[in-house]
């Protein structure tokens, strides 16, 4: 083909431009500095210069962070997942019932105690995947709007969690199972999950297809992407990560309760949105969500540090979520206009 037409100039692959996540990073630094200053004014001490505080801060948001990674890729694909909080509760209960020790007299399955930790974990992940499969099939094949489909599974999964032991909490896991929630393990698991999906979204076909479907589903289909199959994968991943988060919470508290994970889905969505993930699909990144998650953490521990009422905390959280979206919309407008 080379001879048939004159060739234009070489086009550079990528420019030297700051990645969009830098903006969000600035917001994070700004918020952290505000708390630092307020800390010196009102508490007479530094907010950031405390390793313990930072550790607790990151630990607080890691579990929802795991969910948020899954939710991020769902939103990038142009969908939404409201079921993750309920999956946390349902899987916490389900997995825990296979993770109990034999010394506990009132185990859910007295014959199935002291199992190796891999068994409850595998069962929990499979249960999560099943919920994701249902979400994905409803959305991709039955063409039910993601909001409605996942609302349905959200209510159903919560119902399952309550029904499973008729509302009784499940406690006394084996040490092996409890290990996944111990110390800084939740943070380690979160970092591993985030790293895997950062790479997957950026460098693999899985990620490229996810962005393509969110950007323009019709164009994705015409380009030869099997949109239905891929959407199912995306929802399976999201629910599986929510299941993982559920087991981590249960392991950490050494108990599972039907109400666990209530409204986690909203926090997870909020983290993604603050991190620059666009609800219209096609835009955002795991890195952005991670920063969004830390912003969340800073706000929570900042308010605790300043000994402010938890009520203010929620109100401010709401304001920040909306502000983040407004800023994003404004930024997008500017970016489109300039050319």
């Amino acid at each position: 083909m080379q001879d048939t037409y004159t060739t234009g100039a070489e086009i550079k692959a990528a420019p030297r431009r700051l990645p969009p996540e830098v903006n969000i990073l600035f917001v994070l630094v700004g918020i952290a500095l505000v708390f630092e200053i307020l800390g010196w004014i009102f508490q007479g001490q530094s907010f950031l210069m405390s390793i313990d505080r930072l550790k607790i801060m990151i630990l607080q948001v890691s579990v929802i962070g795991i969910i948020s990674v899954g939710v991020t890729q769902v939103i990038i694909a142009g969908g939404i997942d409201l079921s993750s909080g309920s999956v946390v509760g349902a899987v916490a209960m389900f997995a825990m019932s296979f993770a109990q020790v034999s010394t506990y007299a009132r185990a859910v399955y007295p014959d199935l105690t002291d199992l190796p930790a891999i068994v409850p974990i595998a069962l929990g992940l499979m249960a999560g995947a099943l919920v994701g499969l249902i979400n994905g099939a409803l959305i991709a094949y039955a063409k039910i709007p993601p909001f409605i489909a996942t609302l349905g599974t959200m209510v159903t999964a919560r119902g399952f969690a309550k029904w499973y032991t008729k509302g009784q909490p499940i406690s006394f896991p084996t040490d092996d199972f409890a290990f996944i929630g111990k110390g800084m393990m939740p943070v380690a698991i979160f970092l591993a999950v985030a790293a895997i999906f950062h790479v997957a979204m950026k460098y693999t076909r899985y990620g490229k297809f996810t962005y393509a479907i969110g950007a323009n589903q019709q164009a994705a289909r015409v380009s030869g992407i099997n949109v239905e199959h891929h959407l199912i994968k995306v929802y399976v991943v999201a629910a599986t990560l929510a299941a993982l988060a559920g087991m981590v919470v249960a392991a950490r508290g050494q108990t599972a309760q039907a109400g666990m994970g209530l409204a986690y889905e909203l926090d997870a969505i909020a983290m993604a949105v603050i991190g620059g993930v666009s609800l219209t699909g096609g835009r955002g990144s795991i890195l952005g969500t991670m920063i969004g998650m830390v912003i969340f953490g800073v706000i929570i521990s900042g308010f605790t540090f300043l000994r402010l009422d938890a009520y203010y905390q929620e109100m401010i959280k709401g304001v920040i979520i909306v502000a983040a979206v407004v800023a994003d919309v404004y930024r997008q407008k500017k970016r489109t206009k300039k050319s």
């Binding site: 990528a14 076909r205 297809f209 323009n216 015409v222 096609g282």
Partner: peptide, 29 residues
């Protein structure tokens, strides 16, 4: 039905190709 408007030029151009080619066994482009 054509462009992925919010994606960049590279993604737009490579999308059809990578549905069938230039991807290794682990799914990496």
């Amino acid at each position: 039905t054509g462009c992925f408007l919010v994606l960049d030029c590279l993604e737009n151009m490579q999308m059809a190709l990578i549905t069938r080619d230039k991807v290794n066994g682990a799914g990496f482009v």
